[in-house]
Simulated scan of single mutants.
Amino acid sequence: MTTETTAIRMFGALHTIRKERGLKSVAQVILPPEGRVAEEIALELELPLDKIEGVFINHVVYSIDQVIRPGDEVAFVPTGVPGPHRFMLGIQNAGKKK
Rank of each mutant, 00 (worst) to 15 (best):
G80T: 11
G80F: 07
V37G: 00
T3N: 01
F87K: 12
F87I: 13
P32K: 10
K19G: 01
A38L: 10
V77C: 07
E39G: 02
A94M: 04
V37S: 00
S25V: 03
G54P: 07
L43D: 15
S25G: 13
Q28D: 14
G54W: 03
Q66N: 02
E20N: 15
N58D: 11
K24D: 11
F11I: 05
R36Q: 14
P48R: 11
L47S: 08
K19F: 04
F87G: 04
A42G: 09
P48V: 11
K98V: 14
K98S: 12
Q28I: 02
H15L: 06
I52H: 09
V81W: 06
I30Y: 00
E40K: 15
F11W: 13
D65V: 02
H15S: 08
I52V: 15
F56P: 05
H85D: 10
E39T: 15
L31R: 00
I91V: 11
E46F: 12
G71D: 02
G83R: 14
R18A: 13
F76H: 06
I41E: 09
I8H: 00
A42E: 08
G35Q: 09
L49W: 12
G12E: 07
I30N: 10
Q28A: 12
G71T: 06
R86D: 06
P32M: 04
G90W: 00
I91T: 03
A94H: 03
V67L: 08
I64F: 03
